[in-house]
């Protein structure tokens, strides 16, 4: 683990009965970066986060946060870690301010931290209201305020945009960006929404069926946008041969048609090759694969 690494996992594995929830995940999250942990529901994101926080024990592997190996007896390291796991929860009979005061006492934060957190998450109007009567969005804000309250160096946030309205999502995005860029806070956030992560994360780990299937930075993700041409043709087998002979390298069967990659600008050439081979072309359409399709393909739900 380098000095720049804030969160590191080695061969992190957790099994529940027959289900391998997390399978050998290796992460290196650098100081001050926003790391998006992207995966579909049930991919193993929350289980990984729970292991990062010592809430559950890995069957194999280990976690280090800020150089401390995480276990059931880890304590001091959590002075520097703020977190939100899965759903937003609070003591329903206590007010927003009282809920935050509990966190303040347990993290040894100064008194002023409560009002600062209320201000940061725009909860002033609800500060004296019982948490039990808050809307889901405001409960989420309260949970985020709880995570931020003691000015942690590391934020571990499980689906932070849950239940927030579009304006709230933008506010939280800006807040996390400023914490990362201006205060050097490391943010590890999970999400199942690619767009949310693509907007914010410096680096993205894509998890599927408990495995980290790809780790890329934001720019690389943009570069993964692919295009292809879909062709409807009378005889796909002969058509694939004809296109291969004409110099098209990446061809996939797609039902009764074909997909030809990296050929967006070569549609006339493609048509000529098919017609010359005596094939009937019933349709031809260039398609641009967006990031969502890329994500779905990687996580096993794409076409």
């Amino acid at each position: 683990m380098s000095a720049e690494t804030t969160i590191a996992t080695r061969s992190l594995t957790k099994r529940y009965g027959d289900v391998l929830a997390v399978d050998g995940v290796e992460l290196d999250v650098r100081r001050g970066e926003i790391y998006g942990f992207l995966g579909r529901n049930g991919a193993g994101k929350t289980t990984t986060i729970r292991m990062l926080l010592g809430l559950i024990r890995p069957d194999r592997g280990e976690v280090e946060v800020l150089g401390t190996r995480i276990g059931a007896s880890s304590r001091e390291v959590f002075s520097h870690v703020g977190y939100l796991v899965e759903s937003a929860t609070a003591y329903p009979n206590l007010t927003v301010r009282e809920n935050l005061d509990i966190q303040r006492r347990l993290t040894r934060a100064p008194h002023a931290a409560v009002e600062e957190a209320i201000e940061a998450m725009r909860l002033g109007e609800f500060a004296a209201r019982r948490a039990g009567v808050l809307s889901l969005g405001n409960k989420q804000r309260l949970s985020l305020a709880r995570a931020l309250l003691h000015r942690p160096d590391v934020l571990v946030l499980d689906e932070p945009a849950n239940a927030l309205d579009p304006a709230g999502i933008v506010e939280v995005r800006e807040l996390l960006r400023s914490l990362s860029s201006e205060h050097g806070v490391t943010v590890f956030m999970s999400s199942h929404i690619l767009g949310e992560v693509a907007h914010l994360a410096d680096r993205i780990g894509i998890v599927s069926s408990g495995r980290l299937v790809e780790e890329i930075d934001r720019e690389q993700l943009r570069g993964r946008e692919r295009s292809h041409v879909e062709i409807g043709v009378s005889d796909p087998v002969r058509a694939a041969t004809a296109l291969g002979q004409a110099g098209f390298a990446r061809i996939e069967r797609d039902g009764e048609g074909l997909r030809v990659f990296d050929a967006r600008d070569r549609v006339p050439e493609m048509t000529r090759a098919l017609v010359s081979a005596g094939l009937d072309v019933t349709g031809i359409a260039p398609v641009r694969e967006d990031l969502e399709s890329y994500f779905l393909r990687l996580t096993g739900d794409g076409e």
Binding site: G54, L55, T89, Y91
Partner: peptide, 11 residues
């Protein structure tokens, strides 16, 4: 209330 998890990763 689902608050147990908030008590377990603290100093």
């Amino acid at each position: 209330d689902g608050t147990a998890k908030n008590l377990l990763a603290l100093p």
